[in-house]
Amino acid sequence: MADKAILYDASKCIACKGCQVACKQWNELSAGTSEFFASTDGYENPSDLSANTYTRIKFHLTEKTNGDPDWLFRKEQCFHCADADCVTVCPYAGEAMQYDSATGFVWVNRDNCIGCGLCISACPFNIPRLSDAADDPSGEPRSYKCWACLDRVTNGEQPACVKTCAPEAQKFGDRSELIIEANARKAELEAQGKTAYVYGVNEQDGLHYLYILLKEPSFYGLPSADELNAGSRKAALKALCEEAKQLAQKAASF
């Protein structure tokens, strides 16, 4: 299998949240309780990712130059970095947090996860979440995040969120082809007088979740390549790796 990816096109997303529900259905994730909305920008819920919420639509409300509202959406989930900091810092990298060699997607084998939470500290996109011990089948906290429905993908199916997407704002395919498609779509949108950005081609050596965005990535709260490569971040990662090493040694000494 060639490197796979999912392309999310914000210009086509209608924020119907079908992806959120399809994700919960396929992955058998329970609903939480919520009240009203999580954001003043619109109908955002739940308020955060969790061990039971791998993906959600974020709402961004602003204004166009003509005074009309401008309502932008982004699907939040794991980006499946080619150089994934969560894998880098995992004390059991390759056994707990790991790359799927066939597709490039990143997943966590919870049988080997110790719930240390280093992946959460390391992730530049703030994606993984620890479960509550009481709710976890293992009886201990474990790391949870989007795994690109690898059980579907390895059986020739699209991830659940892609399959359900009514306006076809998401596409699953070979990463190299999706990058070409993303750039073509950007050109198409620009030809229509719109602004468009492709996100994920080079970040973290390349993301396996690519975005077409209608405003600059920082508007959506996404880090730039410079921010991702900042020395301070690299230093922090190094410290987390040290911590991971100690955790692994400690575990081995039992």
């Binding site: 959120q20 529900v21 259905q25 609903a31 819920n45």
Partner: peptide
Amino acid sequence: LPWLAEIVPDAF
């Protein structure tokens, strides 16, 4: 349906 009640829980 709990999944849908979660995303819009209240009248507004």
